[in-house]
Design a protein around this nucleic acid. Structure first.
Lengths: 249, 249
DNA sequence: CGCACCTTTGAAAGCTTTCAATACGGGTGG
DNA sequence: CCACCCGTATTGAAAGCTTTCAAAGGTGCG
């Protein structure tokens, strides 16, 4: 059912190549950086709020999330971090993280020394702008999340969210054309979409009843993506920012 | 009532100096860049979605906003842009804007050529990381906005929002200790906070009745900031990210 | 088999929106 | 100087979406 992952590239490289012209030299430079691998279990806090960030950290597999907590313990998931995402886009300038990063499933991380990364960035010309582009894409995704929370009802939020996750997983070859593994509980979806668990459940049932989706445990099928996109006003422009022709800096 | 603005520095420099150690040389380099000034009236679209960004644009005075529209024309304000904010943090890598930037009041912009900016960044050592820090601060602000929308009720959202705006204006010396000019209609506040105009009105009345705020036209007083912060669980950590000690890149 | 965690369902309560109508404030034309 | 106008603010009441509270059903695992 699922296409085999493309083992030729790391998820980050796959993503960068999907959206941009990144030279093979740049990709090789990125993938050639010495790294340490770290495995994290579901529920574990990868980075705590206030923690010092001293490396560049990439997700190789699994799902994580940037989260914040309110005084009364409610959690808000600010963004999901999928294979190929960078946990630490601002590692070079920001000392302390102002949010938490939590593992939502088993996660494999690749940890690079900042000095190594810098050295490579100086050599691999297009890489710096490609990574900067990746950071800009995350910004755009978070902005779209604001719109989702501010201007859509529960059913639309969920539909829109599912389409985003599917698209992002597809890009890193971790989803099939019409289905994917969604390693989230309904409570986690609720924490992301500013809803209650109960209402997420009911809205999911609604989408199922309407023939938009089909769930079997963690496997979710999007039965008619154009129709679902129409239903929730999903437009992928925010994911596919165009990169500047001749990248500077 | 309001302290005189500090004319020695531009708002951006004031902000950078407030949050970080930025050398006077760096500041002078930034302020010395050749620029063009542009005046925009309230309601005008400064940049449209899809538009090419070919300059670095700073706000010198007035309020603007990053906005997105849904299919049915509803507007979501994603973030407010105040004096000292950078409209184009990703100008070096992203070609097209995926959102709109609109003027909410009369706005004065300073427009820099990207090539000039690049040249200065190469000379002024700390400036690049200071600007990167500023971009990271905006990311953090948007993330906090997600929390506000996802996990707070109307009254808390408004209170939290007012405190953020006041704090940001204070930093660029555009607010008094307990009051500020808020050049927004209630409809605009609604579009930012994912609420209806009517409910914004009622929630504002509530805050007034409770003695939290006092409004007179566009002037708003925050009568007891610690108490208001307690009311809505406002914590400024997200605004005052610590910069890396020795900035790299 | 029992526990722990997740999903589902029902019903009432609550927050927010929508619809409608009435003030208000400042600016313009007579 | 005053009537009029328009955009904004305010208020009331009903409708609607979402949450909360409670309880039952499922599923995987030790």
């Amino acid at each position: 059912m699922f296409t085999a992952p493309d083992f030729a590239y790391t998820p980050l490289a796959t993503r960068l190549k999907y959206y941009m012209d990144v030279g093979d030299g740049d990709v090789a430079a990125l993938e050639g950086i010495a790294y340490e691998e770290r495995h994290v279990v579901r529920g574990e806090t990868i980075f705590a709020r206030g923690q010092n960030i001293e490396w560049v950290v990439l997700i190789m597999s699994g799902w994580a999330a940037r989260t914040r907590y309110t005084r009364d313990g409610a959690r808000q998931i600010v963004n999901f971090l999928l294979p190929g995402d960078i946990l630490t886009p601002d590692a070079f300038v920001i000392r302390q993280l102002e949010h938490e990063i939590e593992a939502l499933s088993s996660v494999t991380l690749r940890i690079l020394a900042m000095t190594d990364m810098q050295a490579v960035l100086e050599r691999a010309n297009g890489l710096a702008s490609a990574l900067w582009w990746a950071a800009a894409q995350e910004d755009s995704i978070v902005r779209e999340h604001v719109v989702r929370l501010g201007r859509r009802n529960a059913q639309e939020r969920i539909a829109h969210f599912l389409l985003e996750m599917h698209r992002r997983m597809l890009v890193v070859k971790q989803a099939a054309e019409n289905s994917m593994i969604l390693p989230l509980t309904q409570a986690e979806i609720a924490d992301a979409l500013g809803l209650s668990l109960v209402h997420v459940n009911r809205s999911l049932s609604f989408l199922q009843k309407e023939g938009h989706i089909d769930r079997r445990n963690t496997v979710i099928q999007l039965l008619d993506i154009p129709r679902l996109a129409e239903f929730c006003d999903f437009d992928t422009l925010y994911l596919s920012l165009e990169r500047q022709q001749q990248a500077a800096v």
